[in-house]
Amino acid sequence: MSDKNISQSPGQPPAALVTALRKLLRPLVRLLLSFQVSYPYLTALLKSVYVEVADSEFSVDGKRQSDSRINLLTGVHRKDVKRLRAEHTNEPVLPATVSVGAQLIANWLGSARFRNEAGDPLPLPLRSAQIPPAGRAQQAPSFDDLVEMVCRQDIRPRVILDEWIHLGVAHQDEQGRVVLNTGAFTPDKGFDEKVFFFGKNLQDHISAGTHNLLGNKPAFFDRSVYYDRLSEESLQILNELAAELGMQALRTLNNEALALQRADEQKVASSVTKSTKTSKNPNRFRMNFGIFHYNSRYETQANTQDGAQSQQDQDNA
């Protein structure tokens, strides 16, 4: 570890880290219990992840890890290490609505053609034929245009729209135009889609925090605003403000990231055209910027309801 000010006894993690881990694990265990993920199941999963991370990220001088060293690092028995290293973990397939939808939303929010003067996403006629003649002369965009720009001819726009309406990403107004819902960076419905963003966003948030705790430089931005003596009325005001400011920040960063990625792609395309030599694509890095807002009001209500239900179950037993 880079931070030499950490007080730690041999074989014992820092007490402050253990306290933080307990806080981090509580909501995770609550989720696991809600989906009947048992402790034995979790320990088996955790064992495989320990071996995977030790194998891929803790090698010495880039040399291939031995089973004995992974056993020493993780405490996992060598027989289990050997078995787990021989198994090929299949990464879950990315839901199609996520991979396509994220690109469509990014371009809808980030492309000047699909925004109004205030920078808000335009309501889009489903097809170009729905655009009045005067609008066609000005090449007003349609939802078809957006889908074709991202997906070419691979997916029909109507299929995407039906799925988006089901997930709460978009709706059609009284004129039949496709309207992007306010919080459309993540869907309101669809478990596979929501759990994908849950894993991706928390993975990157924890990765940023881990990077900072280890004293690596430059540090990632990771800040929050914390108050703990607020009324329900104040929480409602802050909840609405957090949503408004959060969406402003996400849109601003999305627009800049989209423009930069397009410029990066053009640079690579230009260099390939000018030279017959093939080189490694420099555009191989990813970023993830997230904003979260939390308050204890709804969690307290949920815990009260769960407690009442648990007591009722015991009374009925």
Rank of each mutant, 00 (worst) to 15 (best):
S270C: 08
R229Y: 06
S128L: 14
L180E: 00
T186Y: 13
G307A: 09
H293Y: 14
G176E: 03
E174S: 13
N254H: 03
L25C: 11
R251S: 11
Q12I: 13
R26E: 08
S279A: 15
D67V: 07
Y50H: 11
R127K: 14
T278C: 15
S2H: 15
D228V: 13
S34G: 13
K200H: 08
E256N: 10
R251A: 12
D313A: 13
N201C: 04
R78N: 02
G183T: 05
N116L: 01
S142R: 00
P121A: 02
Y226E: 13
N303P: 06
T182R: 15
H211W: 05
V150F: 10
A269D: 10
T182G: 12
L146Y: 02
L253Q: 11
E91C: 09
P40E: 02
L213V: 03
P141F: 00
L253R: 07
A137D: 05
I70M: 04
E87I: 15
K47C: 08
Y294P: 04
K4H: 14
I6D: 04
Q314M: 09
F198W: 12
I206L: 08
R127W: 05
G215W: 01
G168N: 02
A16F: 06
M1Q: 11
S9I: 12
P14I: 04
A308G: 07
I165N: 06
M247V: 12
D61G: 09
V81S: 01
D154G: 13
I105K: 03
I6A: 05
S128T: 15
G119W: 01
R229W: 06
S9V: 08
G75R: 10
V225H: 02
Q236F: 12
P92G: 03
L72G: 10
N281G: 05
T89C: 07
E87R: 15
E233M: 10
V179E: 01
A112Y: 06
E174Q: 12
L260H: 10
H77C: 12
A102I: 11
T300P: 06
V81K: 03
Q8D: 05
T276V: 08
D192L: 08
Q175S: 12
K47E: 07
S224N: 14
D264Q: 08
A243W: 02
R26M: 12
A302F: 01
Q248P: 03
H88Y: 14
R262D: 15
E91I: 05
R158Q: 13
R177A: 05
E117N: 11
Q130G: 14
K82H: 10
S296W: 06
R78V: 09
A112G: 12
E117Y: 07
S224A: 09
L126Y: 02
N71K: 13
A16I: 08
L213Y: 07
Y294R: 09
I105N: 03
V81G: 00
L33H: 09
F221V: 10
Y39R: 02
D61T: 08
E240K: 15
L24S: 06
E244A: 11
G307W: 01
T97N: 13
V272D: 07
N239Y: 08
A102N: 12
A259W: 11
G199V: 01
E299P: 03
A219Q: 09
D144N: 06
A129S: 12
A118G: 10
L122W: 00
N295Q: 03
L250N: 04
S68P: 03
G11Y: 00
L250W: 02
I160F: 09
F35M: 10
E265D: 09
A208M: 06
N255M: 14
R284F: 00
Q312E: 10
V169N: 01
T74R: 05
T74V: 03
V51H: 01
G209H: 14
